[in-house]
């Protein structure tokens, strides 16, 4: 095995192991803030694995969007809430059946992937090997903006509508709130506010 291939393999196993352990800690961590931070670690390791399999653009965008934006906002909320852990645990038994169903589904899907691989469907569960000169960014750009432009734009429009709707739902107009208008504040000149009066000096006040 060549040195760089050995390194690749080592990096894969290292980050893969950390990823699985961190994912376990996300659901077992006592404090929600710790859980959110383990989720950050998860995303980060996933990004490394994606970059390792040649999808550098996707891996970096995963870090940028999920780690840099989504989880920061999540962390914000979790920190402010001061969640009571005991109360969260209360519903465990009630929701356990649903959890078991979902877990079974996931296990089945995973098993199906491996099973299909064993039957010879190599498109599934097979890491694509790309050459060093492969430009992942260009490939994605061509797909999104040339081959699938309309679905892509449509998805963007739907997200935009959802965003505007969410903002409208939280928008409250409260009457009687005063706020500054910075443009007006900047336009104010000294003579609008201050009047200089010249008083005759040297006269003593009679008290």
């Amino acid at each position: 095995m060549s040195p760089s291939a050995w390194l690749q393999e080592t990096v894969f196993w290292f980050f893969g192991t950390v990823l699985v352990l961190a994912a376990l800690r996300v659901i077992t961590a006592k404090h929600p803030v710790h859980a959110a931070l383990f989720l950050v670690l998860c995303f980060f390791n996933t990004a490394v694995l994606w970059i390792l399999s040649g999808a550098e653009f996707l891996g970096l965008v995963l870090v940028l969007i999920y780690v840099g934006a989504v989880l920061v906002l999540l962390l914000f909320v979790v920190m402010m809430l001061d969640v009571e852990v005991a109360k969260l645990r209360e519903g465990f038994v009630r929701y356990a059946p649903l959890g078991v169903v979902i877990a079974c589904l996931l296990v089945f899907e995973l098993a199906y992937v491996f099973w299909a691989h064993a039957l010879g469907f190599h498109a599934l569960g097979h890491l694509p090997r790309v050459t060093a000169t492969h430009n992942n960014t260009r490939a994605l750009g061509t797909t999104l903006y040339r081959h699938d432009l309309y679905p892509f734009e449509l998805a963007g429009m739907i997200l935009l509508v959802g965003l505007i709707a969410a903002i409208l739902l939280t928008l409250r107009r409260r009457p009687g709130i005063r706020s500054q208008n910075p443009a007006q504040q900047v336009r104010v000149r000294a003579r609008d506010r201050i009047r200089l009066v010249s008083l005759p000096s040297g006269r003593r006040h009679s008290s």
Binding site: E56, F57, V63, L64, V67, V72, T137
Partner: peptide, 17 residues
């Protein structure tokens, strides 16, 4: 890196943590 600029954006967004 081919995606150097995205790398920069991704890393600088981690600094907030």
């Amino acid at each position: 890196l081919n995606a150097g600029l995205i790398y920069i954006l991704a890393l600088t967004s981690i600094g907030v943590y």
